[in-house]
Simulated scan of single mutants.
Amino acid sequence: MTALHALSDTALDQLFRSARTVHAFEPVPISDETIRALYDLAKWGPTAFNAQPARFIFVRSAEAKERLRPALSAGNTAQTLAAGVTVIVAHDTRFHEHLPAQFPAYDARPIFANNADLAQATAFRNGSLQGAYLVLAARALGLDVGPQSGFDAGLVDKTFFPDGRWRSNFLVNIGVADHSGTKPRGPRLSFDDAAQIL
């Protein structure tokens, strides 16, 4: 039997147990190199047919944040403007056009090109997974994150994706936490409440 090679408790704490959803950020810039390193980690997470439908818009400049501001809920505005970068996690509705290169095993493109409902469900599900990989990649690099769904997705799409091909899913604020704004951790469901072994 192959031995398991678990990460250290320190790494697991950083990724999960001690990590928090951040609602306030220090004014620390996030470099291009860090953003690229973040994507280069997140891109390795698995997706169906290796389709990789997620698209990431890293909103960092003051001008870009101002474009995003009207779509934010009141409770999310300050933290989004303060974060080093805010990522619009979106998905490409025509992700299947890339399948011949991304999934060369066989021609899977017609599966999705001929079934719009399946294409949308696959893009949304796997794009959501990729957004979660992005959160973990950011934590792995020592960054703090605050995912959020409190925004007007239609307005984000109109502002950033006017051709309609990409559609926003959720936002992720990334940066260095200002822990004066950190709230007590909420409880988690127990295994017996949330899971079964059959």
Rank of each mutant, 00 (worst) to 15 (best):
K158P: 00
G84N: 13
T159E: 04
N126W: 07
T93I: 01
H96M: 07
S128W: 05
H96N: 03
Q79E: 14
W44F: 14
F58Q: 08
A113F: 02
P29Q: 09
E66D: 14
V172C: 06
A119Y: 07
V59A: 09
T34I: 12
P162I: 02
A48V: 09
L155W: 03
A74K: 15
L38R: 08
L129N: 07
T34R: 14
L171I: 05
I57P: 00
L136E: 14
L143A: 11
V176Q: 13
F58E: 08
Q79C: 10
S149R: 14
R109I: 00
A113S: 10
W44I: 06
K65W: 10
A82S: 15
F124K: 13
P104I: 04
L12S: 00
F124A: 15
E66W: 06
F58K: 08
S8N: 01
G154L: 03
I111C: 00
A71Y: 10
A121K: 15
F103Y: 11
N114V: 01
T21L: 07
D178C: 06
K183N: 02
H91M: 11
L198A: 13
D32C: 02
N50V: 06
G186L: 11
F49A: 07
L12C: 04
V85P: 11
D178R: 06
F160H: 05
P53G: 06
A37L: 09
T182H: 05
L155T: 07
T47A: 05
P27E: 09
F161T: 04
A113I: 00
Q79N: 15
Q102M: 13
V135G: 06
L38Q: 11
D9L: 05
L81K: 08
E26F: 01
A62Q: 10
R188N: 05
P104C: 03
M1G: 15
L118M: 10
A195V: 00
L12N: 06
R188D: 01
N115F: 00
L141H: 12
F25V: 11
